[in-house]
Design a protein around this nucleic acid. Structure first.
Lengths: 218, 218
DNA sequence: CACCGTTGTATTGTATACAATTGTGATCCG
DNA sequence: CGGATCACAATTGTATACAATACAACGGTG
């Protein structure tokens, strides 16, 4: 269990950044964040260091804090790295997967399907189920190191902003990818699992690209 | 530049761990580390969080600190991940490499050659030049995210302990790998660079495996 | 004698005060 | 008017005191 204050600070600051309330490049002070979080600067500094690792916050040469502002190249790179690591996780998971986890994966993807399979898709539920699905795979990969590395590749900031741009087709395709992943896991086929994951992540990137491009045209 | 106290704490604790003075699994307290570092607990906690990211230190469920103790599987996994990420770095570097950096790489590998090319190889100099070589490639890859990720895959703890086991052949092969990397960079051949890096890292792993295995037999 | 709570102690977590550093703006001189 | 310099304001860094939590030893009770 995380320490109370430093954890709430982490969550509050994180949602402050991800909600878009804080725009990229915006300067911050530790004291500001302490007020927002309702705790003192000590746990805030703890939380800030974590967020620096996720590169949601950056420190200038003179230690000033600001909200990260990613270039197109950096976003591409993030998806690439995430693709590499998640594929590797899928590969390991395929090897170590057991019946219980497999069952859980199916249940999660059923929930995800329900969220998508309505007249107006429930994006929040979709995103949550999607995260659960990937987290469970990561857990099955049984690699503490991967588990440490992957959270530093947060796609949330871009995903959250663009999720409502996703077409129903994109969401259905995600669902289908997950189904195929489950099939690969069932067959314990590492290469299959890895390949599906690679295209799954890469597709997400292109959906994102199209979404931002079109929103830029607004 | 990092803050003075928290940085010295980081370096002192790190070397305390890497020197082997602190054996794997050993329990630590923040106060102990504060004494060792000669600073108060506040900057120590800063340093500890960094070292946790590098997984040199771990916290139990109840926040107790201890020196990490890696299983064989985890070490294998670390080399695998490092291989993936460094290959990717090499690929990007091949694309973005310029004449100045190439010249530097050649110079570094000359220094490395000198260190190896004597009756009794100078391991310390070799390791230092080797690190410089890889760091420069990482810099040329121009990916802040990779630069953030790779330090979390420290091979130092195992390398330092086993470096003196490395045979002259291993060292010469490393030198040759670097030469081939330079050739790939000169040709701006991304696939070549990436492939050479993959085998370079993987070879290092097997040299390490053999070295530890034989030292276990002592 | 085993088991479970209770109390005391060790350790980590948080707040606050202060030190060091950095940014800023006014003033003085050229 | 332009630029350097100094003073002060804002911000980050560190130490210390205290609060909360986890651990261990002890003693009671079934």
């Amino acid at each position: 269990m995380m320490s109370r204050a430093s954890d709430t600070a982490y969550r509050k600051i994180r949602s402050f950044v991800l909600s878009g309330e804080a725009h990229p490049g915006m300067q911050l002070t530790e004291e500001q964040l302490a007020e927002i979080s309702g705790v003192s600067r000590t746990p805030v500094r703890d939380a800030v260091q974590r967020l620096e690792n996720e590169m949601l916050l950056v420190r200038s040469a003179s230690k000033r804090l600001s909200v990260a502002d990613w270039s197109d190249d950096e976003i591409d790179e993030m998806f690439t790295l995430r693709g590499m690591l998640e594929s590797h996780a899928a590969q390991r998971a395929a090897q170590k997967m057991n019946a219980g986890s497999l069952k859980q994966l199916r249940e999660i993807n059923e929930a995800l399907t329900k969220a998508v399979d309505q007249t107006t898709p429930d994006i929040a539920t979709f995103l949550d189920a999607n995260r659960q699905f990937h987290d469970l795979i990561l857990e099955c990969a049984q690699s503490p190191r991967l588990s440490k590395l992957l959270p530093a590749l947060v796609e949330q900031p871009v995903v959250r902003r663009t999720a409502h741009h996703y077409s129903r087709e994109d969401l259905m395709q995600s669902r289908a990818d997950h189904e195929e992943l489950i099939a690969a896991f069932t067959a314990k086929d590492q290469n299959w699992a890895s390949a599906v994951m690679t295209s799954h992540i890469r597709r997400a990137f292109h959906s994102f690209s199209v979404a931002t491009k079109s929103s830029a045209e607004d």
